[in-house]
């Protein structure tokens, strides 16, 4: 095994039981991701890219196959163990932001720290730092409905970063944003990558995927292409 790999998956299969029929979302996928990679998973809807992200992000378990995250087998972990992995090693950024609408930015960002058992003072301190790092230092006490789409996504990114995760997942992070705001968010991801983070981007948009350094294309649950992007945006 390549010990330098952050992620290593071996023959991962995911089957959904839809009543009488079985739907194969992933078919024996094998791949690995190194530290500080900037990877885009591409594919049309139904290709299995979201399923793959869910399994890599420990939101879901594979039907069969092995998944090593930092040399640790997580494919067979129970719910609580997976919750801990999600809490400490993974950060998520979603298309629909998925913020708590009634809580202000600090409360939203500190949420993973609450589940990690970090004391309140430290939580707030770190949440403020994270919000400042995404350029929201002056919006910390606002609630999500009072923010623009781009600002909301920045809150979500701050939340994803708060626990210093090993890798950050971004599921169509610009899907609900206009082009200009989307571009700003993508620039933020670029900076995160530059600072040493590992980023896995899930998208069906070519323009967005072109920010990544490596692109994997899925179709019908299979990897049909895996290549290095020779002309990334923000080179």
């Amino acid at each position: 095994m390549d010990n330098n790999a952050l992620i290593k998956i071996d023959k991962i299969t995911k089957v959904y039981n839809m009543g009488m029929t079985e739907v194969y979302a992933l078919r024996e996928i094998t791949m690995d991701v190194k530290r500080n990679e900037y990877l885009a998973i591409m594919g049309p809807s139904g290709s299995g890219k979201t399923t793959l992200m869910s399994i890599l992000g420990c939101l879901d378990s594979p039907t069969s196959g092995q998944y090593f995250l930092e040399n640790e087998e997580v494919g067979s972990m129970n719910d609580n163990q997976l919750a801990e992995i999600r809490n400490k090693r993974v950060g998520f950024v979603f298309q629909t932001f998925n913020l708590m609408p009634r809580a202000n930015c600090i409360k939203n960002v500190e949420l993973p720290l609450i589940y990690a058992g970090v004391p309140q003072e430290e939580r707030i301190e770190r949440a403020i730092k994270a919000l400042e790092s995404v350029g929201l230092g002056d919006r910390m006490h606002h609630k999500p409905p009072e923010l623009s789409g781009g600002q909301r996504q920045r809150v979500a990114i701050a939340r994803a970063l708060i626990n210093n995760p090993s890798l950050i997942f971004a599921d169509e992070p610009t899907g609900n944003l206009d082009t200009k705001t989307g571009e700003e968010i993508m620039h933020l991801f670029y900076e995160l990558w530059k600072n040493g983070n590992t980023i896995i981007l899930v998208t069906h948009e070519e323009d967005i995927a072109r920010h990544a350094r490596r692109i994997i294309k899925l179709r019908d649950g299979l990897i049909i292409d895996d290549y290095i992007n020779q002309n990334p945006i923000y080179a």
Partner: peptide
């Protein structure tokens, strides 16, 4: 609840 679980809330 889904968000909370995704962010690491245990059962």
């Amino acid at each position: 609840i889904g968000i909370r679980k995704a962010l690491g809330a245990k059962k």
